[in-house]
């Protein structure tokens, strides 16, 4: 019995002391255009793996802006949709306007905050009502971009990723598309889920 314990402890030490080779690495992003000190927050439904095949289409767009903002919401929408379309296509999904397998939504808070409950409520009757019963009280901070992936048939929220970073407000107009693409790419790097391959 003593030998058994000794061997088990030694095996445990041998595996753990150098660090587990299959362990998930901390999330991170590469350099991002016009964004500094990014943070990520990713939720993945455990019972269903988010798909990397099939079709995707657009869900909602939720934008929170200051009342006096001169920002064009439709310009932001076009930039983000362009970035998301490129990334999901790269992952193997095909864009479809009618009856896609998954719905991709986004929320941007340039002012105020966005609560998880507010995001869920935006879907109306398009998602499983069980999601409304979750007591999360989670507040996404001002400056955040949240991407959602929902299975249209099962009505399950499969994946939700949020990125927040300091915005370079002096970024020229022509580089804003690059900023959106970088932010979306940094998030979708962890789609379908963070694993050992990402650093």
């Amino acid at each position: 019995m003593k030998h058994f314990l000794l061997v088990t402890v030694l095996l445990g030490l041998a595996v753990c002391l150098p660090g587990c080779p299959a362990a998930p690495q901390p999330l991170g992003t590469g350099p991002l255009t016009g964004l500094e000190h990014p943070s990520l927050h990713i939720m993945v439904l455990e019972k269903d793996t988010p798909p990397v095949a099939g079709s995707f289409g657009w869900g909602y767009a939720l934008l929170k802006v200051p009342p006096s903002a001169q920002t064009s919401l439709s310009a932001i929408d076009e930039r983000l949709h362009s970035a998301m379309r490129a990334e999901f296509t790269r992952k193997g999904l095909v864009f479809s306007e009618s009856e896609p397998d998954i719905l991709v939504s986004y929320a941007v808070a340039a002012a105020g905050e966005i609560s998880a409950e507010e995001l869920n409520r935006t879907y109306g009757d398009l998602i499983d009502p069980a999601l409304f019963e979750m007591k999360t009280d989670l507040q996404y901070k001002r400056g955040v971009l949240v991407l959602d992936v929902v299975d249209r048939r099962s009505e399950h929220l499969l994946w939700r990723g949020a990125i927040m970073a300091e915005l370079d407000t002096g970024l020229p107009e022509e580089r804003k598309q690059q900023r959106c693409s970088d932010a979306v790419q940094a998030l979708l790097r962890y789609y379908p889920r963070p694993d050992a391959r990402v650093k």
Binding site: G59, Y60, A61, L62, L63, K64, V65, P66, P67, A69, L73, D77, A109, A110, A111, G112, E113, T122, R142
Partner: peptide, 10 residues
């Protein structure tokens, strides 16, 4: 948090 105008396009 500052006041915000919320817009949803869906």
């Amino acid at each position: 948090a500052t006041a915000a105008v919320s817009v949803i396009f869906f």
